[in-house]
């Protein structure tokens, strides 16, 4: 464990909590892509299947349980509790455009052709595109509430810190996980465009981020 990965995990946790609290307190999920949240729940489910078979550390186990619980709670709030505030017509990204390539690729490129490895690889590839429906919704509606942008900011920060973590681990312990690194870099690139908008729009005072 290093400071970059710890900070990354904390940012990830903060992002998930920001979103969950926003939905719970505003009792609305307007402007939030339910599809992205479903994809994140699938990512955690397919990645943490080893929760009961492999014990790494208390931290690892606890964080996995917390991420699973919070992501399912978010999906529950969106599709069940506050479903009347869910504007599904704006959440129109075609998930099959993501799932088909990701499933295909995880069968082609993996470390071992075993169910657990393929599901882990699937979760890695899926995570790199899971935010697409949310970013698509923002470009479609042309705006994002500031809380949603803070959520995306911390999510992007988590990915950037994971890249720093991989650089650190490569130089200190020679660790290099090709699938995770390539997928993580692709995922972080999606946030770069958003980071620019976040800094120029949201942090300059305007509550809403309106796209040009």
């Amino acid at each position: 464990m290093n400071i970059f990965r710890l900070a990354g995990d904390v940012c990830h946790l903060v992002a998930i909590i920001i979103l969950l609290l926003k939905i719970w307190r505003s009792r609305s999920c307007a402007g939030i892509s339910g599809k992205s949240q479903v994809l994140f729940a699938i990512v955690f489910t397919t990645r943490y299947l080893d929760l009961f078979t492999v014990f790494i550390s208390p931290y690892n186990t606890i964080m996995k349980v917390v991420f699973l619980a919070l992501s399912y709670a978010t999906v529950y709030l969106i599709y069940m509790r506050f479903r009347n505030t869910f504007n599904s017509e704006n959440d129109s990204f075609r998930l099959e455009f993501l799932l088909v390539p990701v499933i295909g690729l995880s069968f082609l490129e993996n470390y071992a052709f075993t169910p657990l490895e393929i599901l882990w690889t699937f979760s890695i590839f899926l995570e790199s595109v899971a935010i697409m429906p949310q970013l698509f919704m923002i470009t479609k509606t042309g705006e994002a509430e500031s809380i949603t942008t803070h959520y995306l900011f911390f999510l992007g920060l988590y990915r950037a810190l994971y890249i720093a973590n991989w650089v650190w681990r490569y130089h200190t312990e020679g660790f290099f996980d090709q699938i995770a690194v390539v997928s993580g870099v692709v995922q972080t690139i999606f946030y770069i465009d958003f980071f620019y908008l976040y800094v120029t729009k949201v942090l300059r005072g305007r509550g809403k981020m309106t796209l040009p």
Binding site: R5, D9, H12, D50, V54, I56, S57, N60, M63, K64, F67, N110, Y111, A112, F113, E117, W120, Y162, N165, F175, D177, Q178, A180
Partner: peptide, 10 residues
């Protein structure tokens, strides 16, 4: 295929 690493990252 590379050896299956210990997956210690979240």
């Amino acid at each position: 295929d590379e050896d299956i690493k210990q997956k210690d990252e979240l």
